[in-house]
Design a protein around this nucleic acid. Structure first.
Lengths: 298, 298
DNA sequence: CTGAAAGCGCTTACAG
DNA sequence: CTGAAAGCGCTTACAG
């Protein structure tokens, strides 16, 4: 009975018809749970991210789900809230469920489990953030060049007092963007003083950071937020201070967000090509993504 | 060997220790795929929504995932793009995978499959949109009272030319909001002329609708968009026309969005308590959600 | 081409 | 308390 359902096996047309008729009549639906037990491989993928509510990861989730569905895979999603413990828990459940592959944006503490994943030979890809020492492909846009160009752009606008609301420098994206920002300025002969560098958390910290910047004796004349959430907090602080973006302070953000254009004048943005994410590893893709190979290749 | 792993069965402590030691040494991880084959019930839930990128559904996805995780369930997500065919495909895959339960915001064409789900005794709940004739609990905020209050608010502001960018009237939310809007005005002695009622699609249509409204000989003095996406389009159109929200045209939206407060002056909003969604059906919850019982109870 | 059978990794009566 | 065994629904050699 199984044969007509499991692809092109040898089945006579008479038998096939008889089986299909009965199946229809009985409302039979193959049990996808039993199959992998025999096949040793599920058609399920896991996505572990800090939080879908972050627009960047919303887009990631959509892109990954699309790509998964296209290939007949289901996507299980887990939100870690940057909590290493939750990350471990999700990974463990996913491994117990024998997912065929894993897309992870790691809170970077689960390296033990992740090495295990690697050893188990389960397909694993990092998005955006990765864990040092786990030899696995990373899919992320390299922001260096973009940040550098942004700095040039701001300086061309005659804003010499450049401030950055940075992510944690010990994270890959945080460090990279901060470094590129400071170096971009320095290389153009502009110093970024320490008080113009506010270290944030990539989350809620943007508001406080912007307040602090506005409270300085000599506030900056342009501000760059290193991701979308901090940008949003910073914009709130500006709003509260009664300042217009870009009229008073030109404002730039890493990560685009659908509503930035609605602000007047709009925020300057470094957009990551998130929609293409799902397609990475497929033919013809993707010049704009950086595929770091710290080990195994994609 | 199974016993120590599957809850409080009778196992001697000596045997238990021996087993656990070996398990540790061998890196054994129970196979969660094999279990339901015997148990007849997975610990997986399915969420089928139009699109996670819609902020309302992003919040739904997060709330449902949280609730699922809390109870030890995994969440599989599918985006239908309002395409009934995709909806059927997702539901079919989910059924094949024998999910324990299903949370669906339906594109309303899959009623055949949904009835099947119902018959199969799989837990099924609709969020926001439901399918007529499928006797299943619906979780949604009833917008009637809120829309009515909004209309009162706008009229109190002396805006008599009220326009609505409505969703499809044949959808539950679309019809309900449109009706409440028109009746709210009428009951207060204000007529809403036909040209102030633009029927949209709950998606991209907001922009065109707002353009049309602005192009009228006598444009409205206040506009209400019946969901977040159309609101966004409408705001774009306002922006393009060089108009400030609320200074020129007070603008209201169904669904809150995190960035509305950043607009100046902010959009008036009818917020749905999405965060509570995951908690519905749990003790002490939720006065603000409407649990329609078209049949079986939650 | 087709039927009968083994086995994937669990859970759970069943006997001891 | 513990071991041996059946059976969940598939897939896939194997023999006919």
């Amino acid at each position: 009975v199984s044969r007509p359902f499991s692809g092109a096996q040898f089945v006579g047309s008479e038998v096939r018809e008889r089986i299909e008729a009965s199946a229809d009549r009985l409302g039979y639906r193959p049990n996808a749970v039993a199959r992998p037990l025999r096949m040793e491989s599920t058609r399920t993928l896991g996505l572990v991210i800090p939080n879908v509510m972050n627009p960047f990861f919303t887009a990631v989730a959509r892109a990954v789900e699309d790509a998964a569905a296209e290939h007949g895979y289901s996507l299980v999603v887990g939100n870690t809230d940057e909590d290493p413990e939750k990350e471990v828990r999700y990974l463990d459940v996913l491994l117990q469920n024998r997912v065929a592959g894993l897309v992870v944006s790691s809170a970077r503490a689960a390296s033990r489990l992740l090495s295990e994943v690697e050893r188990a030979g389960i397909a694993l890809v990092f998005v955006d953030r990765y864990v040092e020492g786990v030899g696995v492909p990373v899919v992320r846009a390299d922001g260096r060049a973009a940040v550098d160009r942004l700095v040039g752009y701001l300086l061309d606008l005659n804003h010499e007092r450049l401030a950055i609301i940075s992510g944690p420098p010990e994270t890959v994206s945080g460090g990279e963007r901060l470094e590129a920002f400071v170096e971009g300025a320095t290389s153009r002969g502009v110093r970024v003083p320490d008080e113009y560098v506010r270290i944030g958390d990539f989350r809620r910290s943007g508001k406080r950071a912007m307040r602090e910047l506005l409270g300085l004796e000599e506030p900056p004349t342009a501000v760059f937020a290193a991701n979308n959430l901090m940008a949003m907090g910073a914009l709130q602080a500006l709003e509260e201070a009664g300042m217009r973006i870009s009229e008073n302070i030109p404002f730039a953000s890493f990560d685009d967000v659908s509503w930035f254009p609605l602000l007047n004048p709009p925020v300057t943005v470094i957009a990551q090509p998130v929609g293409e994410l799902g397609a990475v590893g497929q033919p013809g893709c993707c010049r704009r993504w950086w595929r770091a190979r710290t080990g195994r290749s994609l």
